[in-house]
Design a protein around this nucleic acid. Structure first.
Lengths: 144, 144
DNA sequence: TTGAATAGTCAGTTAAACTGACCATATTTA
DNA sequence: TAAATATGGTCAGTTTAACTGACTATTCAA
């Protein structure tokens, strides 16, 4: 590791890159008519299960309160990206699943990110980019 | 690059790692009596110049409005981490510089991050961690 | 079968950004 | 050099996205 002096914070790199990705995604989404979708809605798309997820479950995965997550899924339901489904296991619970519109948005967002990352991949070369991603995966896994 | 299907978002990795770093930093700072310092104050420490910086200048570097940055430096001044200095070049402007307390906090924060990153470095090995950082630097530089 | 845990909602609060309008000083230009 | 424009900063109000606390309904466990 470099000396403490003049050491550029790794956090600054992480933040800058994350910000570039998110800013690009939402700018492109807004252009395509998805202006109502904000970065925090992304967490829902990130963790949503194929068979439906509970707000509480999503909240835990995203590291936020159930009240906050509840607000997010409620908005997405109102916009038509999610629909409610009864949980056959538990009468207290509400499952949320993607509508067709929600699936379309998810694919669209993945495409946009995929294209944006291509620029990074071209910059570094495919092998090095693959290595970069696998490094991050190792670090994420080790923190769990 | 992997297929679009089952591709885990690079953004999720970046966010998770950034979040781990920031959460650790502020938990440790709070333990040591710096509970008043929030993540957004970090931006000021990040960009502050040795000879003093203007709020407007910091705002530009941090990518936020001058009003928002003004609020941040005002708070840091109140807490005693920054002090005002007249700008000899421009009577409209106010320069902010670190007080001794501010310098101490900056060093403390660097130490905490440095120690946290050591865990990552141990996980990957020094050479690979160095490579990880230099990869991010390349990507950050290429986006400017 | 009753007490504790869990899913979710309602209401209110806080943090950290934003916009718009404004003043004082600097800079440019007609 | 006087007038127009740009810039540094502040004040006031708004918005977004999180938070806590208190509550109901249902489920699970002793």
């Amino acid at each position: 590791m470099a000396s403490k002096k003049d050491y550029v914070n790794t956090g600054a790199y992480l933040r800058t890159l994350y910000d570039a990705l998110v800013t690009n995604l939402h700018a492109r989404l807004a252009e395509e008519g998805y202006g109502e979708i904000s970065p925090s809605h992304g967490l829902v798309f990130q963790y949503m299960n194929e068979n439906g997820s509970r707000a509480t479950e999503l909240a835990f995965q995203a590291g936020m309160t159930k009240q906050s997550m509840s607000a997010l899924v409620y908005q997405l339901e109102e916009y038509g990206y999610l629909k409610r489904k009864d949980d056959p296991q538990d009468a207290r619970a509400v499952l949320f699943v993607f509508t067709a519109k929600g699936e379309t948005l998810k694919r669209k967002a993945q495409q946009i990110n995929y294209q944006f990352e291509k620029k990074w991949e071209e910059k570094l070369g495919a092998a090095e980019y693959q290595n970069f991603r696998s490094t991050m995966q190792q670090l994420v896994d080790s923190n769990e």
